[in-house]
Simulated assay, not measured.
Amino acid sequence: MSYQKEWLLLEANDEVDEMEHRDPSEEYRFYRAVADGDVNAVRHNCELGRFREGEGVGQLSRDPVLNLKYHFVITTAMVTRLCGQHGMELEQAFRLSDFYIQKLDDLHTADEVCALHDEMVMDFTKKMRKNLRSDTNSKHINEGKDYIYAHIKERITIEDLADELGVSPSYLSRLFKKETGMSVSAYIRQQKIEIAKNLLRFSDSSLIDIANQLAFSSQSHFIQQFREVTGMTPKKYRDESRLNPWDD
């Protein structure tokens, strides 16, 4: 019997799950809170344990842990797309989504899945809050940021970026400065330093490895650029961040 016929038979015999599903507007308000960077609202939702509540969320699997994992994937997909529509670089959004969904493979209890859910939605929310504070509406600038994010470990020139976007380097330079307040090269440097900061905080990679990974011309060049952006050397930043690695 085909699945379609099986469904029609269940429906005709009134044997389908009669659980009333949660009002979609409630779920949408939650997704929008994430996309709007509303940290307090999202944190409050997590504290209430709404993700774990069985009432109104539907049963996707008879296994309670697998059921939560399915709902986790749905939530992540919705959050990813809504954040992408509201200013997050699409490449960043999809990579972040892939990262958290893959983490489900290592989880085996409902508590673990719920904890990952809360961390995931808070991560997206905090990133959106940061993005929206400096949001731009230009299609070229948003696409340019996507390209920079996707190629951050390469050497990127304004000529490369302009060619990718189909505009002239001079036009892109003026537009970028107007909408972001900084030059293309300064923005690329800033993004590379942000990645470097995470590597310094959460990995044991050496300075030369980080410099090479992010396509700086040399270790000394990396140290110089890092100091100009952050006001401290990479070593000092690593030493201080290790004291409180999760400080935002």
Rank of each mutant, 00 (worst) to 15 (best):
M1I: 12
S2E: 08
Y3I: 14
L8Y: 13
L9W: 08
L10Q: 14
D17K: 15
M19D: 15
S25V: 08
S25K: 15
E26V: 07
A33T: 05
G37S: 03
V39P: 07
R50Y: 10
G56N: 04
V57Y: 10
Q59V: 11
V65W: 06
L68D: 03
K69M: 02
T75L: 14
R81C: 04
L82W: 00
C83D: 01
A93G: 04
D105V: 12
D105N: 15
D106H: 14
L107I: 01
H108W: 15
D111S: 06
A115L: 09
A115M: 08
T125C: 06
K126Y: 06
K126N: 09
K126Q: 07
L132W: 05
L132Y: 01
N137F: 05
A150F: 09
A150V: 10
I156N: 01
T157G: 11
D160Q: 01
L165C: 01
G166F: 04
G166L: 05
V167R: 00
L172R: 00
L172Y: 04
S173A: 12
R174L: 13
R174E: 15
K177S: 02
M182W: 10
S183G: 15
A196M: 03
K197S: 14
N198C: 08
S203M: 06
D204K: 06
L207P: 09
H221M: 09
F222C: 00
M232C: 02
K236G: 00
R238Q: 14
E240K: 08
S241H: 08
